[in-house]
Design a binder for these strands. Structure first.
Lengths: 170, 170
DNA sequence: AGAGGACGTTCTAGTTTTGACATGTCTACA
DNA sequence: TGTAGACATGTCAAAACTAGAACGTCCTCT
């Protein structure tokens, strides 16, 4: 449901082709709203069909550049301000925690240790991303930084929790 | 993909009917892996079809009690130990943060404030859940507590982040 | 006795997501 | 000149998820 709003949000910052948008989804939005190529092109056609975006230029290799329309902007703002964000998130990582009694204590500790390590690695990646963003000429919006900071804090929390949880199983 | 493992995990703790399992999903697993009733019954039939679970008793009102089979247990353990947990989680809440520049500064602050409030409310609920669990005769497994603690820490992180983020927009 | 509510399952119709296949163009460089 | 690799879009089948209707049974309370 929110893929369409992701596209609208990106197009609100300027015209882009499906290919460009795919890049954005793979880079900046990868950790927030992953999307596949087929899904993206399908959605672009739907959005164009309902007049929320329109082709503003055509380039080489069949490239179609889309721009957001007035009604697209209206829809985006409506979604931003009126639609309540989803509260619940599925997490197979946590689901496994519920069933940890099904494997041995050592298996459980090993699982939690692994979760901590993965989170620590993710944390490092985000930190290097922040360094890049801070130092670079490329300027991510203020708001992108907010999201990045959320990721940093979330990962730190997970690292600490995993360590704590592993200690609990003794 | 993990609904099946959620069901296997619950059935590993003892036989239950679809109705019972639905209750478990609504109560303990609601924050980790929400599932609807239709999805659940469909999956139970599929699981029975592939021999991972079986009907162990039939009760009144067409009640069918399922039990996990040996191959079901094997599948559960395989999933627990061999299948890497999913890293990325979609979050329309964070997606909106990326596009906050599309609304006014006051709108953005109000959105972040709202996120903080919602998280604070969720935190309270989890805290009362913990009290209930700690004091009650009902004993949630050690592992359920670990998951609960994760929720608590996550919510606290989100409350703090939302406050910090709101201050950033000045 | 009757009614409301909990118990219990099945089915349908739609949307979203995944993963893969198919197809073609342009550019740089060996 | 040829070819690898980036650019660029389209389509399809299957799985997962959502939302709700439909149906019938058993128990408890008035």
């Amino acid at each position: 449901m929110s893929l369409r709003h992701g596209l609208l949000g990106l197009l609100a910052e300027g015209p882009a082709s499906g290919y460009d948008l795919l890049k954005s989804f793979e880079l900046s939005l990868a950790n927030v709203w992953p999307a596949t190529q087929s899904q993206l092109y399908t959605e672009l056609n739907k959005l164009a069909g309902s007049g929320l975006i329109e082709v503003v230029a055509e380039g080489a290799r069949g490239r179609k550049e889309y721009g957001i329309t007035e009604s697209g902007l209206a829809e985006l703002r409506h979604w931003m301000t009126e639609v309540p964000p989803q509260q619940v998130h599925r997490s197979d990582m946590l689901l496994r925690v519920f069933f940890l009694s099904q494997i041995t204590g050592e298996g459980a500790r090993s699982y939690l240790r692994h979760l901590g390590e993965v989170a620590a690695k993710g944390l490092e990646e985000l930190e290097s991303m922040r360094e890049f963003v801070d130092s670079g000429t490329e300027n991510l919006s203020v708001y992108g930084r907010l999201a990045l900071e959320y990721g940093l804090r979330l990962h730190r929390t997970q690292v600490e929790w995993a360590q704590w949880a592993e200690e609990q199983i003794r």
